[in-house]
Simulated scan of single mutants.
Amino acid sequence: MNLHEYQGKSILVKYGVPIQNGYAADSVEEAMTKYDQLAEETGSKFAVIKAQIHAGGRGKGGGVKLAKNRDEAKEHISNILGMQLKTPQTPGGMEGPGKKVNKILVAEDAYAPDFAACKEYYISILMDRGRKQNVIIHSTQGGMDIEAVAEETPHLVHKTYIDPELGMQPFNAREVAFNLGLSGLAFKNMTKFIYKLYAAYLGADSALIEINPCLHKPDDSIIAVDCKFSIDGNALYRQKEIAAMRDVTEEDATEVEAQSYGLNFVNLDGNVGCMVNGAGLAMATMDIIKLSGGEPANFLDVGGTADAARVEQAFRIILRDPNVEAILINIFGGIVRCDRVAQGVVDAYKNIGDIKVPIIVRLQGTNADIAKKLIDESGLNVRSAVALQEAADVVKEVLS
Protein backbone atom coordinates (compact mmCIF):
# COMPACT_ATOMS: atom_id res chain seq x y z
CA MET A 1 0.00 0.00 0.00
CA ASN A 2 1.40 3.38 -1.02
CA LEU A 3 1.21 6.47 1.18
CA HIS A 4 1.15 10.15 0.38
CA GLU A 5 4.21 12.21 1.26
CA TYR A 6 2.55 13.88 4.24
CA GLN A 7 1.42 10.47 5.58
CA GLY A 8 4.89 8.97 5.22
CA LYS A 9 6.43 11.95 6.98
CA SER A 10 4.00 11.56 9.88
CA ILE A 11 5.41 8.05 10.39
CA LEU A 12 9.00 9.28 10.14
CA VAL A 13 8.35 11.85 12.86
CA LYS A 14 7.22 9.10 15.24
CA TYR A 15 10.65 7.51 14.86
CA GLY A 16 12.53 10.79 15.30
CA VAL A 17 13.54 11.26 11.66
CA PRO A 18 14.00 15.00 10.92
CA ILE A 19 11.69 16.16 8.12
CA GLN A 20 10.71 19.22 6.14
CA ASN A 21 7.78 20.48 8.20
CA GLY A 22 4.42 21.16 6.62
CA TYR A 23 0.65 20.77 6.76
CA ALA A 24 -1.76 18.94 4.47
CA ALA A 25 -4.95 20.55 3.20
CA ASP A 26 -7.73 19.69 0.76
CA SER A 27 -9.22 23.15 0.13
CA VAL A 28 -7.85 26.59 -0.71
CA GLU A 29 -9.25 28.05 2.51
CA GLU A 30 -7.68 25.36 4.70
CA ALA A 31 -4.39 25.60 2.82
CA MET A 32 -4.18 29.36 3.34
CA THR A 33 -4.84 28.88 7.05
CA LYS A 34 -1.99 26.37 7.14
CA TYR A 35 0.22 28.78 5.19
CA ASP A 36 -0.36 31.51 7.77
CA GLN A 37 0.36 29.06 10.58
CA LEU A 38 3.59 27.91 8.93
CA ALA A 39 4.70 31.50 8.26
CA GLU A 40 4.22 32.34 11.93
CA GLU A 41 6.18 29.27 13.02
CA THR A 42 9.11 29.76 10.63
CA GLY A 43 9.15 33.54 10.47
CA SER A 44 9.30 33.31 6.68
CA LYS A 45 6.72 33.93 3.96
CA PHE A 46 8.43 31.41 1.68
CA ALA A 47 6.62 28.08 1.35
CA VAL A 48 6.58 25.09 -0.98
CA ILE A 49 3.23 23.92 -2.32
CA LYS A 50 3.29 20.19 -3.13
CA ALA A 51 0.62 18.12 -4.86
CA GLN A 52 -0.15 14.90 -2.99
CA ILE A 53 -0.57 12.00 -5.43
CA HIS A 54 0.88 8.49 -5.59
CA ALA A 55 3.48 9.25 -8.25
CA GLY A 56 6.99 10.65 -8.46
CA GLY A 57 8.20 13.46 -10.69
CA ARG A 58 5.55 15.87 -9.45
CA GLY A 59 7.73 18.88 -10.06
CA LYS A 60 8.08 18.02 -13.76
CA GLY A 61 4.32 18.29 -14.17
CA GLY A 62 3.90 21.54 -12.26
CA GLY A 63 2.86 19.89 -9.01
CA VAL A 64 5.57 21.49 -6.83
CA LYS A 65 5.85 25.27 -6.61
CA LEU A 66 7.80 27.71 -4.44
CA ALA A 67 5.76 30.63 -3.14
CA LYS A 68 7.63 33.74 -2.00
CA ASN A 69 4.66 35.48 -0.40
CA ARG A 70 1.01 34.98 0.53
CA ASP A 71 -0.38 36.02 -2.86
CA GLU A 72 1.88 33.56 -4.70
CA ALA A 73 0.94 30.84 -2.24
CA LYS A 74 -2.76 31.33 -2.89
CA GLU A 75 -2.17 31.34 -6.65
CA HIS A 76 -0.18 28.10 -6.58
CA ILE A 77 -2.61 26.42 -4.20
CA SER A 78 -5.56 27.35 -6.42
CA ASN A 79 -3.80 26.10 -9.54
CA ILE A 80 -2.59 22.79 -8.08
CA LEU A 81 -5.68 21.71 -6.13
CA GLY A 82 -8.05 19.94 -8.52
CA MET A 83 -5.59 19.82 -11.44
CA GLN A 84 -4.97 16.69 -13.49
CA LEU A 85 -1.29 16.29 -12.73
CA LYS A 86 0.75 14.44 -15.34
CA THR A 87 4.17 13.08 -14.44
CA PRO A 88 6.43 10.38 -15.94
CA GLN A 89 4.99 8.02 -13.31
CA THR A 90 1.25 8.68 -13.66
CA PRO A 91 -0.78 6.33 -15.94
CA GLY A 92 0.25 6.96 -19.54
CA GLY A 93 3.12 9.22 -18.51
CA MET A 94 3.13 12.84 -19.66
CA GLU A 95 0.75 11.94 -22.49
CA GLY A 96 -1.74 10.15 -20.25
CA PRO A 97 -4.75 11.45 -18.32
CA GLY A 98 -2.75 12.12 -15.18
CA LYS A 99 -4.13 12.06 -11.64
CA LYS A 100 -6.46 14.54 -9.99
CA VAL A 101 -4.91 16.40 -7.07
CA ASN A 102 -7.29 16.25 -4.11
CA LYS A 103 -4.84 17.26 -1.42
CA ILE A 104 -1.73 19.42 -1.13
CA LEU A 105 1.11 19.84 1.34
CA VAL A 106 2.06 23.37 2.40
CA ALA A 107 5.67 22.94 3.51
CA GLU A 108 8.51 25.11 4.78
CA ASP A 109 11.29 26.21 2.46
CA ALA A 110 13.89 23.73 3.69
CA TYR A 111 16.64 25.28 1.57
CA ALA A 112 16.53 28.70 3.25
CA PRO A 113 18.51 30.75 3.92
CA ASP A 114 21.23 29.55 1.53
CA PHE A 115 20.06 27.34 -1.33
CA ALA A 116 23.53 27.12 -2.92
CA ALA A 117 25.10 25.78 0.28
CA CYS A 118 22.65 22.88 0.56
CA LYS A 119 23.53 19.40 -0.71
CA GLU A 120 21.02 16.78 -1.88
CA TYR A 121 21.41 13.01 -1.41
CA TYR A 122 19.36 9.98 -2.40
CA ILE A 123 18.55 7.34 0.24
CA SER A 124 16.17 4.38 0.07
CA ILE A 125 15.63 1.16 2.00
CA LEU A 126 14.06 -1.97 0.56
CA MET A 127 14.40 -5.74 0.49
CA ASP A 128 16.94 -7.38 -1.81
CA ARG A 129 15.15 -10.70 -2.30
CA GLY A 130 18.11 -12.28 -4.06
CA ARG A 131 20.34 -11.78 -1.02
CA LYS A 132 17.49 -12.05 1.51
CA GLN A 133 18.68 -8.86 3.17
CA ASN A 134 17.46 -5.32 3.49
CA VAL A 135 19.59 -2.87 1.56
CA ILE A 136 20.21 0.85 1.95
CA ILE A 137 20.72 2.36 -1.50
CA HIS A 138 22.35 5.79 -1.38
CA SER A 139 23.91 8.30 -3.72
CA THR A 140 25.31 11.80 -3.76
CA GLN A 141 23.07 12.50 -6.75
CA GLY A 142 19.94 13.43 -4.83
CA GLY A 143 16.94 15.10 -6.43
CA MET A 144 17.38 13.07 -9.63
CA ASP A 145 15.80 9.88 -10.99
CA ILE A 146 17.87 7.15 -9.39
CA GLU A 147 17.26 4.92 -12.43
CA ALA A 148 19.00 7.47 -14.66
CA VAL A 149 21.86 7.83 -12.19
CA ALA A 150 22.31 4.05 -12.03
CA GLU A 151 22.37 3.79 -15.81
CA GLU A 152 24.60 6.75 -16.60
CA THR A 153 26.89 6.87 -13.53
CA PRO A 154 26.55 3.52 -11.70
CA HIS A 155 29.68 4.18 -9.60
CA LEU A 156 27.73 6.91 -7.81
CA VAL A 157 25.11 4.47 -6.50
CA HIS A 158 26.13 2.64 -3.32
CA LYS A 159 24.53 -0.28 -1.49
CA THR A 160 24.84 -1.16 2.18
CA TYR A 161 23.37 -4.54 3.15
CA ILE A 162 21.96 -5.20 6.62
CA ASP A 163 22.44 -8.67 8.12
CA PRO A 164 18.93 -9.76 9.24
CA GLU A 165 20.30 -11.54 12.31
CA LEU A 166 22.47 -8.64 13.50
CA GLY A 167 20.20 -5.80 12.42
CA MET A 168 21.46 -2.28 11.87
CA GLN A 169 25.00 -1.90 13.22
CA PRO A 170 27.04 1.27 13.79
CA PHE A 171 29.41 0.37 10.95
CA ASN A 172 26.44 0.13 8.55
CA ALA A 173 25.37 3.70 9.27
CA ARG A 174 28.99 4.93 9.13
CA GLU A 175 29.44 3.23 5.75
CA VAL A 176 26.54 5.24 4.33
CA ALA A 177 27.93 8.50 5.72
CA PHE A 178 31.42 7.70 4.36
CA ASN A 179 30.05 6.92 0.90
CA LEU A 180 28.23 10.24 0.85
CA GLY A 181 31.49 12.05 1.60
CA LEU A 182 30.43 13.47 4.96
CA SER A 183 32.58 14.40 7.92
CA GLY A 184 32.33 16.08 11.30
CA LEU A 185 28.88 16.99 12.60
CA ALA A 186 27.20 16.15 9.29
CA PHE A 187 28.69 12.65 9.50
CA LYS A 188 27.28 12.15 13.01
CA ASN A 189 23.88 13.50 12.03
CA MET A 190 23.71 11.25 8.98
CA THR A 191 24.46 8.13 11.02
CA LYS A 192 21.65 9.09 13.43
CA PHE A 193 19.36 9.76 10.47
CA ILE A 194 20.06 6.32 8.98
CA TYR A 195 19.48 4.56 12.31
CA LYS A 196 16.10 6.23 12.77
CA LEU A 197 15.09 5.76 9.16
CA TYR A 198 15.83 2.05 9.37
CA ALA A 199 13.80 1.82 12.58
CA ALA A 200 10.87 3.43 10.75
CA TYR A 201 11.29 0.98 7.87
CA LEU A 202 11.07 -2.02 10.19
CA GLY A 203 8.49 -0.60 12.57
CA ALA A 204 6.01 0.29 9.83
CA ASP A 205 6.44 -3.03 8.00
CA SER A 206 7.62 -1.14 4.93
CA ALA A 207 8.27 -2.52 1.49
CA LEU A 208 10.10 0.69 0.52
CA ILE A 209 11.16 4.00 2.00
CA GLU A 210 12.67 6.47 -0.45
CA ILE A 211 14.01 9.86 0.63
CA ASN A 212 14.78 11.93 -2.43
CA PRO A 213 16.11 14.40 -1.73
CA CYS A 214 17.67 13.92 1.67
CA LEU A 215 19.03 17.37 2.45
CA HIS A 216 22.35 18.33 4.05
CA LYS A 217 21.89 21.92 5.24
CA PRO A 218 24.64 24.52 5.87
CA ASP A 219 24.33 23.96 9.64
CA ASP A 220 25.16 20.26 9.01
CA SER A 221 21.66 19.09 9.89
CA ILE A 222 20.15 16.26 7.80
CA ILE A 223 16.44 16.23 6.93
CA ALA A 224 14.01 14.35 4.70
CA VAL A 225 12.60 16.79 2.15
CA ASP A 226 10.52 14.25 0.23
CA CYS A 227 9.28 10.83 1.26
CA LYS A 228 7.97 7.88 -0.72
CA PHE A 229 6.54 5.24 1.58
CA SER A 230 5.19 1.84 0.57
CA ILE A 231 3.80 -0.60 3.16
CA ASP A 232 3.80 -4.40 2.84
CA GLY A 233 0.12 -5.20 2.30
CA ASN A 234 0.53 -8.55 4.03
CA ALA A 235 1.36 -6.75 7.29
CA LEU A 236 -1.55 -4.29 7.33
CA TYR A 237 -3.49 -6.52 9.74
CA ARG A 238 -1.06 -5.45 12.46
CA GLN A 239 -0.70 -1.85 11.25
CA LYS A 240 -4.25 -0.62 11.85
CA GLU A 241 -3.30 3.04 12.09
CA ILE A 242 -1.37 2.92 8.83
CA ALA A 243 -4.07 0.85 7.09
CA ALA A 244 -6.51 3.66 7.87
CA MET A 245 -4.35 5.97 5.74
CA ARG A 246 -5.27 4.11 2.54
CA ASP A 247 -6.46 6.45 -0.21
CA VAL A 248 -8.52 4.38 -2.63
CA THR A 249 -8.98 7.40 -4.94
CA GLU A 250 -5.30 6.97 -5.86
CA GLU A 251 -5.74 3.32 -6.80
CA ASP A 252 -7.18 1.66 -9.89
CA ALA A 253 -10.97 1.75 -9.37
CA THR A 254 -11.43 -1.70 -10.91
CA GLU A 255 -8.78 -3.23 -8.66
CA VAL A 256 -10.39 -1.65 -5.60
CA GLU A 257 -13.79 -3.05 -6.58
CA ALA A 258 -12.30 -6.49 -7.20
CA GLN A 259 -10.78 -6.50 -3.71
CA SER A 260 -14.21 -5.83 -2.22
CA TYR A 261 -15.39 -9.13 -3.75
CA GLY A 262 -12.35 -11.04 -2.51
CA LEU A 263 -10.72 -11.13 -5.95
CA ASN A 264 -6.99 -10.63 -6.54
CA PHE A 265 -7.01 -8.48 -9.67
CA VAL A 266 -4.39 -6.46 -11.55
CA ASN A 267 -5.12 -4.57 -14.76
CA LEU A 268 -2.80 -5.20 -17.71
CA ASP A 269 -2.70 -4.00 -21.32
CA GLY A 270 -3.50 -7.18 -23.27
CA ASN A 271 -6.47 -8.63 -25.16
CA VAL A 272 -7.22 -11.93 -23.37
CA GLY A 273 -9.02 -11.81 -20.04
CA CYS A 274 -7.99 -14.41 -17.44
CA MET A 275 -9.99 -15.97 -14.63
CA VAL A 276 -7.92 -18.46 -12.62
CA ASN A 277 -7.75 -19.89 -9.10
CA GLY A 278 -4.31 -19.69 -7.54
CA ALA A 279 -1.49 -17.24 -8.20
CA GLY A 280 0.88 -19.85 -9.65
CA LEU A 281 -1.71 -21.18 -12.08
CA ALA A 282 -2.60 -17.60 -13.00
CA MET A 283 1.03 -16.89 -13.94
CA ALA A 284 1.21 -20.11 -15.98
CA THR A 285 -2.03 -19.14 -17.73
CA MET A 286 -0.61 -15.75 -18.63
CA ASP A 287 2.47 -17.47 -20.05
CA ILE A 288 0.41 -19.82 -22.22
CA ILE A 289 -1.62 -16.88 -23.51
CA LYS A 290 1.56 -15.14 -24.66
CA LEU A 291 2.85 -18.35 -26.26
CA SER A 292 -0.45 -18.58 -28.14
CA GLY A 293 0.03 -15.13 -29.67
CA GLY A 294 -2.16 -13.18 -27.26
CA GLU A 295 -1.45 -10.76 -24.42
CA PRO A 296 -2.96 -11.08 -20.93
CA ALA A 297 -5.47 -8.32 -20.20
CA ASN A 298 -5.36 -8.94 -16.48
CA PHE A 299 -4.20 -11.05 -13.59
CA LEU A 300 -7.29 -12.40 -11.79
CA ASP A 301 -7.18 -14.99 -9.02
CA VAL A 302 -10.67 -15.89 -7.79
CA GLY A 303 -9.21 -17.81 -4.85
CA GLY A 304 -9.77 -21.30 -3.57
CA THR A 305 -13.39 -20.81 -2.51
CA ALA A 306 -14.86 -19.38 -5.71
CA ASP A 307 -18.65 -19.50 -5.83
CA ALA A 308 -21.18 -18.51 -8.49
CA ALA A 309 -21.51 -14.94 -7.18
CA ARG A 310 -17.75 -14.35 -7.16
CA VAL A 311 -17.36 -15.83 -10.65
CA GLU A 312 -20.10 -13.51 -11.95
CA GLN A 313 -18.41 -10.44 -10.45
CA ALA A 314 -15.11 -11.53 -11.98
CA PHE A 315 -16.84 -11.82 -15.37
CA ARG A 316 -18.30 -8.33 -15.09
CA ILE A 317 -14.94 -6.82 -14.16
CA ILE A 318 -13.13 -8.50 -17.08
CA LEU A 319 -15.82 -7.50 -19.59
CA ARG A 320 -15.47 -3.81 -18.71
CA ASP A 321 -12.14 -3.78 -20.48
CA PRO A 322 -12.84 -2.78 -24.10
CA ASN A 323 -9.57 -4.38 -25.21
CA VAL A 324 -10.65 -7.90 -24.20
CA GLU A 325 -11.18 -10.10 -27.28
CA ALA A 326 -11.47 -13.46 -25.47
CA ILE A 327 -11.72 -14.83 -21.93
CA LEU A 328 -9.81 -17.87 -20.71
CA ILE A 329 -11.08 -19.52 -17.53
CA ASN A 330 -8.55 -21.95 -16.07
CA ILE A 331 -9.61 -23.65 -12.83
CA PHE A 332 -7.97 -26.49 -10.96
CA GLY A 333 -10.52 -28.05 -8.63
CA GLY A 334 -8.75 -28.82 -5.39
CA ILE A 335 -10.56 -27.06 -2.58
CA VAL A 336 -13.16 -25.62 -4.96
CA ARG A 337 -15.28 -28.08 -6.97
CA CYS A 338 -15.16 -27.66 -10.74
CA ASP A 339 -18.92 -28.14 -11.11
CA ARG A 340 -19.52 -25.21 -8.77
CA VAL A 341 -17.33 -22.99 -10.92
CA ALA A 342 -18.97 -24.28 -14.11
CA GLN A 343 -22.40 -23.47 -12.71
CA GLY A 344 -21.10 -20.03 -11.82
CA VAL A 345 -19.93 -19.51 -15.40
CA VAL A 346 -23.31 -20.56 -16.80
CA ASP A 347 -25.25 -18.41 -14.32
CA ALA A 348 -23.01 -15.41 -14.93
CA TYR A 349 -23.34 -15.77 -18.69
CA LYS A 350 -27.14 -15.80 -18.43
CA ASN A 351 -27.30 -12.93 -15.91
CA ILE A 352 -24.95 -10.66 -17.84
CA GLY A 353 -26.68 -11.34 -21.13
CA ASP A 354 -25.24 -10.52 -24.52
CA ILE A 355 -21.53 -11.41 -24.20
CA LYS A 356 -19.75 -10.69 -27.46
CA VAL A 357 -16.32 -12.21 -26.77
CA PRO A 358 -15.60 -15.96 -26.98
CA ILE A 359 -15.09 -17.80 -23.69
CA ILE A 360 -12.78 -20.79 -23.25
CA VAL A 361 -13.15 -22.83 -20.06
CA ARG A 362 -10.62 -25.37 -18.79
CA LEU A 363 -11.65 -27.19 -15.62
CA GLN A 364 -9.50 -29.91 -14.06
CA GLY A 365 -9.74 -31.67 -10.72
CA THR A 366 -12.68 -32.42 -8.45
CA ASN A 367 -15.87 -33.09 -10.46
CA ALA A 368 -14.21 -31.95 -13.70
CA ASP A 369 -16.32 -34.39 -15.73
CA ILE A 370 -19.54 -33.01 -14.28
CA ALA A 371 -18.31 -29.47 -14.94
CA LYS A 372 -17.50 -30.21 -18.59
CA LYS A 373 -20.97 -31.69 -19.07
CA LEU A 374 -22.56 -28.58 -17.55
CA ILE A 375 -20.63 -26.33 -19.93
CA ASP A 376 -21.21 -28.46 -23.03
CA GLU A 377 -24.95 -28.83 -22.39
CA SER A 378 -25.58 -25.21 -21.44
CA GLY A 379 -26.29 -24.14 -25.00
CA LEU A 380 -24.08 -21.10 -24.51
CA ASN A 381 -21.23 -19.88 -26.67
CA VAL A 382 -18.65 -21.34 -24.29
CA ARG A 383 -15.94 -23.76 -25.40
CA SER A 384 -14.48 -26.29 -22.97
CA ALA A 385 -10.97 -27.71 -22.93
CA VAL A 386 -9.25 -30.44 -20.95
CA ALA A 387 -5.50 -29.94 -21.40
CA LEU A 388 -3.78 -26.60 -20.96
CA GLN A 389 -2.31 -26.82 -24.46
CA GLU A 390 -5.78 -27.47 -25.83
CA ALA A 391 -7.03 -24.31 -24.14
CA ALA A 392 -4.07 -22.41 -25.59
CA ASP A 393 -4.86 -23.70 -29.08
CA VAL A 394 -8.47 -22.52 -28.76
CA VAL A 395 -7.28 -19.08 -27.65
CA LYS A 396 -5.01 -18.91 -30.68
CA GLU A 397 -7.88 -19.98 -32.93
CA VAL A 398 -10.36 -17.38 -31.69
CA LEU A 399 -7.79 -14.60 -31.93
CA SER A 400 -6.75 -15.41 -35.50
Rank of each mutant, 00 (worst) to 15 (best):
R362Q: 13
A342R: 12
G333N: 09
P322S: 02
R310G: 07
V341T: 05
V336H: 00
V311C: 05
I352K: 04
V361K: 02
R340P: 00
I359H: 02
F315T: 07
V324Q: 06
R310I: 15
R362I: 03
R362F: 05
T305C: 09
V336R: 01
I329V: 15
I331V: 14
P322I: 01
P322Q: 00
L328Q: 12
A342D: 11
A326H: 12
D307R: 07
V361W: 01
A326E: 11
P322T: 04
R320L: 11
L363C: 08
I318A: 00
G353Q: 05
A348Q: 02
D339R: 07
V336M: 15
G334N: 09
P322M: 00
N351Q: 14
A309I: 12
Q313D: 11
A308E: 13
R316W: 09
G334A: 14
T305R: 11
I331W: 02
R340I: 15
P322F: 02
D307I: 07
G344W: 05
V361Y: 00
A348T: 06
A326V: 04
G353M: 07
N330P: 12
V361A: 06
R362H: 13
R316N: 12
A342P: 07
P358Q: 14
N330R: 12
D321L: 09
D307E: 11
V346Q: 00
N351I: 04
Q364T: 14
I318Y: 00
I335Q: 10
R340C: 10
A306K: 06
E312M: 11
D307Q: 12
V346L: 12
D354G: 07
V345Y: 01
G334V: 09
V357L: 08
A314V: 08
R316M: 12
N330L: 09
D347F: 05
F332Q: 09
E312P: 02
Q343A: 13
F332G: 07
V345Q: 01
Y349F: 15
D321M: 10
G344F: 06
A309C: 03
G333F: 04
L319S: 08
A326Q: 13
R310N: 10
D321C: 10
D339H: 10
Q343L: 15
V341Y: 01
Y349Q: 03
D354V: 05
V341W: 00
D307K: 10
P358C: 14
L319Y: 10
L328D: 10
I318W: 01
V346H: 00
Y349I: 05
I327Q: 04
V346A: 05
C338F: 01
P322C: 01
K356A: 13
R362C: 08
K350Q: 15
G353L: 03
V341Q: 00
R310A: 08
L328Y: 11
A309Y: 09
E325Y: 01
L363Q: 09
I335E: 08
V346K: 02
A309T: 14
V324P: 03
K350N: 15
N330W: 08
F315A: 06
Q313W: 02
V346T: 07
L363M: 14
R310Q: 14
C338Q: 00
R362V: 04
V341A: 03
A309E: 15
R310F: 06
D354Y: 09
N351T: 13
L319D: 06
G334Q: 11
K356V: 07
L328I: 15
I327R: 06
G344C: 12
